[in-house]
Nucleic acid binder design. Structure first.
Lengths: 256, 256
DNA sequence: AGAATATGTCCGGTATATCAGACAGGAAGT
DNA sequence: ACTTCCTGTCTGATATACCGGACATATTCT
């Protein structure tokens, strides 16, 4: 659906494109990839760089993201009480249990990680902030999907027989498999992800509901498989305690 | 200077505006504040929300930032080798010394914090990521300004007698005062900020140069004044070691 | 050294996007 | 219940922005 302002759409497309790449690119690459005429592309880059959203590198004759993009992202995080509140509690939990912890929200069929707290000396995790992964393959995604209303689930995954993309050749292969998995998640009150994203790692997650009861986010802890499997219910319990604390502070219903 | 694409400028203005607020606002507020006609404002909001940069809250009849704004910010951080590399080292330093650490870059007359690592149980610091503060009042800003070429300094602060904004009624009051302060910073190799931003806190910072020798960023540690003042040279030494490690890994000149 | 290619800027014709205003519906105030 | 105000959508006239192409300069290739 067109907004009726193609220049606005194009400039956002350029911003999007610059943020997904590995770094600065020539203007011709932007023009060609996005199908925007050359002179128009320069106008859009001028608008972006005037506000610091893009930066020109004359030496390399390339254009890259500007630091204002970073400020926009931080502005978003700052406006989310959920993010601010969770970060502190998740850092404490990461330290106490010596695991990684994170918070993610659903966006389409993906989750996006908004908070990530590693334990000191902890390994790099794929759930770095800003990363997006298929919801059905992640513990956080499953925790959220499990508590979506049926109509929402149907809108996201219309046909039971539809095959789902997998990684490490693990994970639910069809929407029907996913539904079964989510049924188990609802019964337990927490979800797991067993080496379906990264070999050797195991995650436990639980949902965070907002004040309307909507599954707004999920928090998870991730650790070495051998260590986490020793006490999954215990870890899940700690996680749900943190989730309840977050919901209470946010004025959530806590699962009503 | 106009880019020749007012719609592009306006949509970026809306994005900027949404990111600086405390949260979602009515469309009329956006229209009035930015001086954009109502129907045009709805078109721009449609373009923003189509890509997830803005979110509509029908219940409150307001518009707020979307999670894609967060992704853009993370995209920026991910593309900066300096950010990725520094975060790990600063986290280690924060843990070892039980202080807060951070990294900032210069943007105009301000610094923007790109990395912040607190010690476990450490207090909330004003240098949260995304925050911007006047460069002349911060340890990181002073560390960067001290190593800018003379013409750059003159461009930023043209007249020696110009008064500078202060906080806590401390800090250099004129550009001339600032120059003296920066001279001391150059001589020592590190800068300090003594309760000029937050009462009770003391910061030490040192510059990070890129491969051309340009002062690209600065790293700092911040702690309780009484604790830090015990061993400023020792802490500064540790900080400069970290800075050298970062520069070496980035292929910097290390202060040539 | 010369040719080819790419970048960045500029210009003007024409297709079209902007925007004032109308309208419908919802929320707030009386 | 009624009135007022606000939000969100829609329409069409006209001012203007988009974009093809030209040009200058820089970089890369032969």
């Amino acid at each position: 659906m067109s907004s009726g302002s193609p220049a606005a759409e194009h400039v956002l497309a350029v911003l999007d494109f610059l943020s997904h790449g590995k770094g600065p690119v020539p203007a011709a690459t932007i023009s060609r990839t996005l199908g925007i005429p050359r002179s128009t592309t320069y106008q859009l880059l001028e608008a972006l760089s005037a506000r610091g959203f893009a930066t020109h590198f004359p030496d390399d004759r390339t254009w890259g993201l500007g630091v204002r993009a970073f400020e926009i992202g931080s502005g978003y995080a700052k406006q989310q009480p959920l993010v601010l509140m969770s970060a502190q509690l998740l850092r404490q939990l990461a330290h106490d249990l010596q695991v990684g912890t994170h918070l993610a929200v659903l966006h389409g069929l993906d989750v996006i990680y908004l908070v990530e707290e590693r334990s000191t000396h902890g390994p790099w995790l794929v759930s770095e902030v800003g990363v997006r992964l298929p919801a059905h393959l992640t513990a956080t995604g499953r925790a959220i999907l499990a508590h979506l209303p049926k109509n929402q689930m149907r809108a996201l995954y219309p046909h039971g027989s539809t095959l789902l993309p997998v990684r490490q050749n693990r994970g639910p292969k069809s929407v029907r498999d996913l539904r079964d998995l989510l049924q188990q998640t609802r019964q337990r009150g927490w979800s797991i992800e067993n080496e379906e994203i990264t070999p050797g790692f195991f995650s436990v997650a639980t949902v965070i509901r907002d004040y309307t009861g909507w599954p707004a986010a999920a928090i998870a802890l991730t650790g070495d498989k051998e260590k986490v499997e020793n006490d999954i219910p215990g870890l899940a319990q700690r996680l749900m305690q943190v989730a309840t604390t977050i919901e209470t502070r946010l004025g959530g219903t806590g699962g009503i």
